[in-house]
């Protein structure tokens, strides 16, 4: 990359303009985006599994239709993101290979099982709620195609969070057993949701590493800690409205900061899950690979049909 190109790239960032696919960009910027967008896309499609698991057991036709629409949205989000990644010169099939062989990862939150129907509520409310807090700033990401994909994703996510909240609200105000089921799901999903924001990266940790570089490039707009705090502050009053408690004895309003204080997060668990030792790592990936392999004949048949049709058109034209 010439000095001239680098200056043009930096000028775009300085003016808070968007970088578009055919602009010259530093290789590190391109690779960071490929890695991030690809793993984001993988998270969307793996994220279909914990919820897809409950479609056949949804408690009513209304809930079933809603859940199917939500899982379909996740597939769509994956597609927007793979398309955005492809504008950086990678092939979707390559990215899927990297996912299937375990060399690229997806969010570890999807390696937890969805044990009861209330988990579908907790996933929508907490997991999608945390995802929204992460994703809204990405709508202003410096890379145009990623930012545009995120605008579409964020519009659709808000329905996801509300349907989760509604499930929990209904359960929480139902029979004592239903209330207990809702509370149990929140107890299990709260800490993993806080870990979704990643390890602490403010103060000492902010100086080196990924966050600083990503912020300089306009890919990341806020630190993991800022986003986590924002999530806690918006979620605590919602929990009160649900009539459920969050499983953290240290959670309390801090008048001075104008924010909620919360307990220390045990990241040992997050690292174990990322290393592959979570409850569902193997199952999720195996299911994904099987779905891909089982669909091979459909892809081949469609390609063969298209080829045959194209041949006919040529014959007709001759």
């Amino acid at each position: 990359m010439s000095g001239n190109d680098l200056a043009t790239f930096q000028a775009l960032l300085d003016a808070d303009e968007r970088v578009e696919p055919r602009d010259a960009m530093p290789e590190g910027y391109r690779k960071t985006l490929v890695r991030q967008i690809a793993q984001h896309a993988h998270s969307e499609i793996i994220g279909m599994q914990p919820e897809g698991n409950w479609i056949t057991r949804a408690p009513s036709l209304r809930r079933k239709a809603i859940l199917m629409a939500k899982v379909q949205d996740e597939a769509g989000h994956g597609l927007y993101l793979y398309a955005a990644a492809e504008t950086l010169g990678v092939d979707r099939s390559e990215l899927l290979d990297l996912l299937h062989s375990g060399r690229q990862k997806y969010s570890s939150i999807f390696n937890y099982p969805s044990q009861t129907w209330a988990d579908i509520g907790a996933i929508g409310w907490l997991v999608d709620g945390a995802a929204i807090v992460n994703q809204v700033p990405l709508c202003r990401c410096s890379y145009g195609p990623y930012a545009r994909a995120m605008v579409r994703v964020c519009k659709e996510e808000s329905f996801h969070q509300r349907q989760g909240f509604e499930i929990l609200h209904t359960l929480s105000h139902g029979t004592p057993a239903q209330h207990e089921m809702a509370q149990d799901a929140v107890n299990r999903w709260w800490w993993p949701s806080l870990m979704m924001f990643g390890p602490s990266d403010s103060g000492e940790a902010a100086r080196g590493g990924h966050t600083a570089q990503s912020m300089a490039w306009g890919i990341k707009r806020f630190s993991n800690d800022e986003l986590r705090q924002r999530f806690v502050d918006m979620t605590v009053p919602q929990a009160e409205a649900l009539g459920l408690t969050l499983p953290d004895p240290d959670l309390r309003w801090n008048e001075e900061r104008g924010s909620y204080d919360f307990g220390e997060i045990d990241f040992t668990e997050l690292f174990e899950v990322i290393k592959g030792n979570g409850p569902c790592n193997k199952e999720r990936l195996a299911h994904r690979v099987k779905a891909h392999e089982d669909g091979a004949w459909v892809r081949e048949a469609a390609a063969a049909y298209a080829e045959k049709q194209a041949g006919r058109v040529e014959e007709g034209a001759a």
Binding site: Q36, H40, F110, N134, L138
Partner: peptide, 17 residues
Amino acid sequence: LTAAGGHGAVPTEGVPT
């Protein structure tokens, strides 16, 4: 690791592109 992957923390090192 970063939360930048939208749905939560994903590794940023040792991941091929």
